[in-house]
Simulated scan of single mutants.
Amino acid sequence: MSDLSQLSFSSSRPLTLGVELELQLVSLRDYDLTRAATDLLAGLQYDDRFGEVKLEITESMIEVNSRPRLDATAIAADLDGLRDVLVTHCRLNNIAVCGGGTHPFHRWPERRISPGERFAALNNRYGYLSKQFTVFGQHIHIGVTSGDDAIWLTHALNQYVPHFVALSASSPFIDATDTGFDSARLNAVSAFPLSGQSPDVADWAAFLDHMALLQACGVAESIKDLYWDVRPKPEYGTVELRICDTPLTIDRAVELAAFAQCLARNLLRMRPPIAPASQALVARYNKFQASRYGFGATLADPIRRRRVPIGDALRALIDSLTADADDLGCRKQLEQLRALVISERNDSAWLREIARSTGNLNDLTRMAAERFASPSSYRPNV
């Protein structure tokens, strides 16, 4: 068990970006999830130039991680390179790779836990929840210079968790059923005891005290055990935003990363007052609203004591980030997200439309896999 009281924060260049995507492995026979991750990785000939390809908790999942990059264009190059490597290798093995926050019709008891001590420990601790955790998210890392900045940015970003949920939602189906949620994936994540919003700790020293308490009580062995919506990642020198569903395309993943970078830059530059305790009062409600209704959600504002349609809040927020987007070179990505908000057609809307038109979830998954296979429009020289 590590001594968390001695944990140090590795400073990184401010606003450095990194992206992780959890992806579905589906059979070309029926587009159900398939148990293939270990065998795929064993036969993968790849030199890590775009980042890593890794196992996830069950054998029907694969994770790709970009390298640390300075801007969204470089992230697009990495994610598209990883996509191309994985899609090509999967085709050779009669498998397709797919985005989306949940698989529309798989049966969780059929999943197999991936090999490895950590995965075995998670399965031992959480039982059947480990297999039900075959859901797929996008994580975004943002570089900061110190542990104190990491804690401040974690609290500042918590207010915007529902905004990321609505923009990224891509999981309306579970067990061959339309759940009525835009992001049903988050219901699986919320089942874990250390999920949700981070506690109201004042600075890095207070965070270490909190972690030492959790460790002494046997609640958590490491920061990896914290399934918070936003959490510090000290070994990388980042704040990790963990709330997004995996999008159906690399383009959407790049747009979400650009949005996170612009928002973090704006927050760190302006240093608006934050009220973690007040936001915590409505955090679960607001996240539920965005998970359930997507762009139709209504958010509770505990400071002004009012309700705000999330579409209005998103348009105003994106407009306020224009100068940051220009300075970071990602104006196009933010404009695409603004258009998405106006259209009210996130990936969940697309999935529902295709399900209605095809009449079955096998063809829906096939078309989602074909969509993921398309090259990114943001990759340089495309």
Rank of each mutant, 00 (worst) to 15 (best):
M1F: 15
M1P: 14
D3M: 01
D3E: 03
L15N: 09
T16I: 07
T16D: 12
V19P: 04
L23G: 01
V26A: 04
S27Y: 00
S27L: 07
L28I: 15
D30P: 09
Y31R: 01
D32P: 10
A37M: 06
A37N: 02
T38Y: 12
D39L: 15
F50D: 08
F50N: 09
G51V: 04
K54D: 13
K54R: 15
L55V: 08
M61R: 03
V64T: 05
R67I: 11
R69W: 03
I75M: 07
I75W: 00
A77H: 11
D84F: 13
V85I: 11
V87P: 01
V87S: 07
H89P: 06
C90G: 11
N94A: 14
I95Y: 05
A96Y: 12
V97P: 01
V97M: 03
C98P: 06
G100H: 05
G101H: 00
W108V: 01
S114D: 04
S114N: 05
N123F: 15
V135K: 02
V135D: 02
Q138Y: 06
H139P: 05
H139A: 06
H141W: 03
I142A: 10
G143P: 03
V144R: 06
S146T: 15
D149P: 07
A156Q: 01
Q159K: 11
A166W: 03
S171E: 05
T177G: 08
T179P: 01
F181Q: 00
F181R: 01
D182C: 07
A184R: 10
R185C: 10
L186S: 13
L186M: 12
P193D: 09
L194V: 05
G196A: 05
F207R: 00
L208Q: 14
H210W: 15
A212I: 00
L213K: 08
E221G: 14
S222L: 04
K224M: 12
K224Y: 12
Y227N: 02
Y227H: 15
Y227K: 03
Y227L: 04
W228F: 14
R231D: 09
P234I: 01
E235A: 12
L241A: 01
D245K: 00
D245C: 08
P247Q: 05
L248W: 00
L248H: 04
I250P: 02
D251Q: 05
R252N: 12
A253K: 01
A258N: 06
L268V: 07
R271K: 12
P272M: 08
P273E: 12
A277C: 10
S278F: 14
A280V: 00
A283D: 13
A283K: 10
R284W: 14
S291H: 03
R292F: 13
R292K: 14
G296H: 03
L299F: 02
R305M: 14
A313F: 11
L317P: 04
D319M: 06
T322N: 10
A323M: 11
A323F: 13
D324W: 00
R331Q: 09
K332Q: 13
L334H: 07
A339F: 08
V341W: 00
V341L: 02
T358L: 05
G359A: 04
G359H: 00
G359V: 02
L361Y: 13
N362L: 12
A369G: 06
A369E: 13
S376R: 03
